[in-house]
Simulated assay, not measured.
Amino acid sequence: MGYGFSAADIAYLASPPGAAALAEVAELELSAASQLADVAAMRRAHRDHAPALVETVRLRRRAAAKLSGAQHWLFTDDALQQATPTLVARHRARRLAGRDVHDVTCSIGADLAELARVCPRVVGSDLDPIRLAMAQFNLTQPKPTTNTVLVRADALVPCSTGTAIVADPARRAGGRRTHDPAALQPPLPDLLAAYAGRDLAVKCAPGLDFDRLGWAGEVEVVSLDGAVREACLWSPGLTEPGITRRSTVLTSAGEAITLTDTDPDEIPEQPPGEWIVDPDGAVVRAGLVRHYAARHGLWQLDPRIAYLTGDRLPAGVRGFRILDRLEFREKSLRAELRRLDCGALEILVRGVDVDPDVLRRRLKPTGSLPYTLVITRIGRTATAFLCRASR
C-alpha cells in the first residue's frame, strides 16, 4: 500500500525546505543493503518528515521510466501504479486538442499535464484531497500551467458544462485488479450514465469485454513499446463516423501506428509463407488482426488464430523465419532440437494448452544455437514451427 501521505506532508514537500531535503535524500542509495542506515540517518536529520521524504524519492525513481518530469513530482504508491504513461497520455491529449476538457478523476495529474499543453481550458477534479494537492503541486513543475483549474468533486456528480469529459476509474477492488466494469471506482456503468449525451473518453483495462459492454462509440487499445497499456472508450462525438475499434501502437521513439475497423481486411487463404509474425497486442485485443495482415500483405496461419504469415516482414517488426514444420510431439521435438545444437529456446504458444516454461524444461535444450519454437493450432492439429528470430 505504501506510505500514507498527509496534508502536512504535502505542504512540507512542496516547500523550499522540503525541496532541499528531497535533494539530500535523492543522493542516498536506498538499496536493500543500505536501507536501515539511510533511513536512520534521515530520521536523525529530518525526524517526522523522514518517511515522506524517503517514500517520495523511491516513488520518483520508480516513475522515471513512466512519466516525464517525474523527478520533480509527488505521488502515492497507488496513484503512481495507475498513472497513465506520459506518451500514452500525450497521445490521448492530441485527440482532444482544441477542446475544453474536464478530467473527473485527475488523481496526481498525469493526464492533466498533457491536456494542459494542447487544450485551451482544463478542469481537474478528484475526491481524494491528498492526490488533488499533489496534482496542484505537480502542475507547477517545471513551471505553472495557466489554463488549469483544480476542484474537489465526485466524478459521478457533473460539475462542468461545455467540456469533453476524461475519466480513469480505478481498476482495483479489494486490493486486486478487476476486469468487472461494475467493480471499478467509480463503477463504469454509473460513470457512463452520469455523462450520458456528453463527449466522453474513459480509460479502461484492455481486458474488459467491450462487446458485452455494448459501447456505441469507439474502443481504442493502446500499446507502448510492445506492451498493451490501456483501452479507451471514445464516445461517438469524439471519433470518426463508422469507427468502432482502433489499435494504436506507440514507441518511445515517437512513432504512432494506427489501425481501425474501417481499414481493408481482405486477405488470402494459403499455406504458410517464409515468416511468422505475432502482431502487437494492441492489434490483437482490438480485433484487428486481419486489418493488420491486409495492410502488410500477410495472411493467417489459421482463421481463428492471431499468428500471421507471409513472405516479407513489415518494416521494423520482429518476425520468425520458418526453418521447419513439425508435428507437436515432445519426443521428436527433443531429438530435432538436439540434432540442431539448440541452446536458448524461445517458445511462443497460441491456441494450444501448453506452458512454455514447463515445455522448455522437458525439451532440455543444452546446445549453443538460439531458436524459436512457435506452437499453434492449424485446423484441428497442433503444429510446431521451428524458426529463427529476425532479431
Results as ranks from 00 to 15, higher is better:
227 A>T: 14
227 A>V: 14
229 R>Q: 11
230 E>D: 11
230 E>S: 10
230 E>V: 14
233 L>Q: 09
234 W>Y: 14
234 W>R: 14
234 W>H: 05
235 S>N: 10
236 P>G: 14
237 G>E: 08
240 E>R: 11
241 P>N: 10
242 G>S: 04
243 I>F: 01
243 I>G: 01
243 I>W: 03
245 R>K: 05
245 R>D: 07
245 R>G: 02
246 R>Y: 06
247 S>E: 04
250 L>I: 03
253 A>P: 03
254 G>F: 02
254 G>N: 02
255 E>S: 11
256 A>V: 00
256 A>L: 00
256 A>W: 00
257 I>K: 03
257 I>F: 05
258 T>W: 00
259 L>E: 00
260 T>V: 02
260 T>F: 03
261 D>Q: 01
262 T>C: 03
263 D>C: 05
263 D>T: 00
264 P>N: 06
266 E>H: 04
266 E>P: 00
267 I>M: 06
270 Q>F: 06
270 Q>M: 09
270 Q>A: 13
272 P>I: 10
273 G>L: 09
273 G>M: 08
273 G>R: 09
274 E>D: 13
274 E>A: 13
275 W>T: 04
278 D>T: 10
279 P>T: 07
280 D>F: 04
281 G>R: 04
283 V>P: 02
284 V>I: 15
285 R>W: 01
286 A>F: 00
286 A>Q: 02
288 L>G: 04
288 L>Q: 01
292 Y>F: 10
295 R>V: 10
295 R>P: 03
295 R>Q: 14
296 H>W: 12
296 H>Q: 09
297 G>M: 14
298 L>R: 00
298 L>P: 02
299 W>S: 02
300 Q>G: 09
301 L>T: 09
301 L>D: 08
302 D>H: 14
302 D>V: 09
303 P>H: 12
304 R>L: 12
304 R>S: 10
305 I>M: 15
305 I>P: 06
305 I>W: 11
306 A>P: 15
306 A>L: 05
306 A>V: 14
307 Y>G: 07
308 L>A: 11
309 T>V: 10
309 T>H: 01
310 G>A: 12
313 L>Y: 15
313 L>E: 15
314 P>G: 11
315 A>P: 06
315 A>L: 09
316 G>D: 07
317 V>Y: 11
317 V>I: 15
318 R>I: 14
319 G>P: 10
320 F>V: 12
320 F>Q: 12
321 R>C: 12
322 I>L: 15
323 L>F: 12
324 D>F: 04
324 D>C: 07
327 E>K: 10
328 F>A: 12
328 F>V: 08
329 R>G: 09
330 E>C: 15
336 E>H: 13
336 E>Q: 15
336 E>K: 13
337 L>C: 13
337 L>F: 03
337 L>E: 05
338 R>S: 13
339 R>W: 04
340 L>T: 01
340 L>N: 06
342 C>L: 03
342 C>Q: 02
343 G>I: 10
343 G>Y: 07
344 A>L: 06
346 E>N: 03
348 L>A: 09
350 R>Y: 13
350 R>N: 13
352 V>A: 11
352 V>P: 07
352 V>E: 11
353 D>Y: 08
354 V>T: 06
354 V>F: 03
